[in-house]
Write a protein that binds this DNA or RNA. Structure first.
Lengths: 156, 156
DNA sequence: CATAAATCCGAAATCTATTCGATTGACGGT
DNA sequence: ACCGTCAATCGAATAGATTTCGGATTTATG
């Protein structure tokens, strides 16, 4: 099921460029990696078909659309039955204010990154979503002072 | 400094579409939101100029490029002098394997999401980057079993 | 209600994506 | 060493998109 696509130096170069800026034109990418536009286009199509390139997403200034507060929630779950946990994770991921859900080992079972308008909004989400499900034993909240996200390929 | 751009219903629709798929053509977006391509183009240009639209990034299957393990690091820092902390946060964000850095309130001071090849690689990063700086008091590591990220607008 | 400003449209011009046949080069089998 | 096969590459042609801009329409303002 998990293919092992063979990626060469040029594929990596293409992926690196698109991770930095998904709005680069095929022509620009081709010029940078040293291929003809048609060949580069075939490469990108192939990367998409093989599932290596999964899509692209615009980065939006959340403050500009009224979401000024971010928080990280550490959720401790009860009885860890796969069925129940998976359902709750899926349900959590569909909450619009949730940016990411991490199922992890360690002190917390779930780490949830949320973006909200204000403290009231945060309180509402915690009490209306998390404290409503029986699987949730406890929620610890951390306010995010500062965040930096990397959109580069993890290769030195 | 922080502008308060006035965004109408159509601007939100455009942003919502581009957050889901940054590869949508201007023509497609225009048709969906009910504008002429030229008008829609002007809107998008304006959103970019005002800093609401910050860019776009391709989503790459990290396993396909050899990064099979993800972890979340909870970093506790010592003496919280702005200067020293900021430098360390910046330095952490430039580590290629780091996907995101959150400066937070609560038990941990820093939450760091990393992607690595394997356990050895993880150990190397922790000992070579985190345990090398004097500001770091302690690092707690959580392995990520499962992750889901939302690329939708946080509006119901 | 009149004026100004912003928004919108449609057509033209420019540039790009996309397809396709032909060429090259690598590889394995004989 | 020879030949056949396959995959990758290119360049040119077509189809399609982006981008610009003058003028029309709508919206805000006094």
């Amino acid at each position: 099921m998990a293919d092992e696509p063979t990626l060469d130096r040029i594929d990596f170069a293409i992926l690196r460029l698109l991770m930095k800026d998904a709005w680069l034109s095929n022509k620009q990418i081709a010029a940078t990696v040293g291929l003809a536009p048609s060949t580069c286009h075939e490469r990108i199509k192939s990367l998409r078909a093989r599932g290596v390139l999964r899509g692209a997403h615009a980065e939006v200034d959340l403050k500009a659309i009224g979401f000024a507060l971010e928080a990280v929630l550490f959720v401790q779950l009860g009885k860890l039955e796969t069925e129940v946990v998976d359902n709750f994770v899926r349900s959590t991921a569909t909450v619009p204010e949730v940016r990411g859900v991490f199922l992890v080992s360690g002190r917390a079972d779930l780490i949830v990154h949320v973006v909200v308008r204000d403290m009231e909004h945060l309180k509402a989400i915690i009490s209306e979503h998390f404290n409503r499900h029986a699987v949730v034993l406890r929620v610890e909240t951390s306010v995010v002072f500062n965040r930096q996200q990397q959109h580069v390929m993890p290769l030195p």
